[in-house]
Amino acid sequence: MPAETTIDPATAFAGIPRSPGSAKSDPILVAEHINRHFGGLTAVDVEHLQVQRGVITALIGPNGAGKTTFFNVLTGFDRPDSGEWRFDGQSLKGMPAYRVARSGMVRTFQLTKALAKLTVLENMRLGATQQRGERLVNAMFRPRWRQQEKEITERAYGLLERFQLAGMANEFAGSLSGGQRKLLEMARALMVQPKLVMLDEPMAGVNPALKQSLLGHVRSLPDDGMTVLFVEHDMDVVRDISDWVVVMAEGRIISEGPPTSVMGDQRVIDAYLGAHHDAPLTVEEEEQVLREAEQIEAVRAEETRE
């Protein structure tokens, strides 16, 4: 990845209005009118969103705000009921997940998906794209893919060194700790050589010691010319590494801006704590909330079964 494309966050966001859906100077991802319903529930209802190239953008919001669903829609793992979105000028609407990844937009998952019975090194090699040996006609004949495999292996070791996993290269991925799996998943995503890295809760379940190194890795991605969009709950993490924050609540984008300004935004505070968070809930209100939560769960379960 060329380093000269590095963008200074301060200049990138100069003069950008701090309002939901604001236009960026150089957007890598543009989403419009994205709607996703689960039965009667509107999980995602995003009017307009632009993600600035070359910086780290955080997507935050209370539980059930639709962040992961939005992620799934953008990366082709879920289909929206309506909406258009373009990545680097190319429309991704209706594109299957694997082609989204090939176009340079690679995601990780909230629940890590380390391929347990493959070694760490094999996990990494799998990430490389355009492998000749992955075509059935070439697979049986090693000379046709040996050289490329060597190059891929070198690249994999380079990344493993950087993520401090080189010593584990020949261990099964299933024997790694939770934090190491997060590292592996991120390193594996980088094997795809993405332009945009989408991280779904990269810090969830990671111990504090490993968190620091993981943070360092995420922060270094823009230096290599990559753009990062990540979902996170941990506000310290968000404040620490993000250049721009997008806040979702109840499927909509309610606020945008630099971390410090967003966290003081009254709409964001209301979304997290409730508009009347100083008034105690009545018993009826509490039951209403519980009922709604159960309905959402039931609908979700229904959808996943399909």
Binding site: F109, A114, R125, A139, W145
Partner: peptide, 27 residues
């Protein structure tokens, strides 16, 4: 011959978690 190849690696990846493999750009 097939299972030591990158093609076989993709199959094993699918066995472990097909969404992860999809996310890496494999059909």
């Amino acid at each position: 011959l097939l299972m030591r190849s990158p093609w076989g690696r993709v199959l094993k990846g699918i066995r472990e978690d097909e969404d992860a493999v999809r996310a890496l750009g494999k059909n």
